[in-house]
Amino acid sequence: MTANESKLDSIIDEYNAEPGSLISILQDIQAEYNYLPEESLEYVAKRLDIPRVQVFGVATFFKAFSLKPKGRQQIHVCMGTACHVRGSKKVLEELERKLEIKAGDTTPDGEFTLETVNCVGACALGPVVVENEEYHGEMTPIKVESLLNSK
């Protein structure tokens, strides 16, 4: 399996396998693998001794979790209100055209994942695009090309 049991054990043991820590455990697994491999969810359910439906329920409820592997480069377009009124939608559309994928998807070569977020707290610089933790403020559709080419 993709997820390795001893790695999962060490994460789960850090929280004493407490069901109340389910969200934190899944966050750590996601940080490790970039997504939540399906087997890891089953394993967590077994170790915490809770129904699988509870684990899948939490894993699909929160936006922070992904059941699909993500690309090597992650591009997050802020769709918060401040960015919206300054034209973030046009920036997103241009990124979708250039990468030939829709928001939420990963390019077939596994290079880019394009996602939207609701406010990254840098509203003063909107529209904001975050690529791999680096912030780019005052984005426009025209700047998209150089953003992608700098990769």
Binding site: G80, C83, H84, C119, G121
Partner: peptide
Amino acid sequence: DEGDPGAFMDR
């Protein structure tokens, strides 16, 4: 949790 998009006071 500061979920209000466009706000970053609490942060």
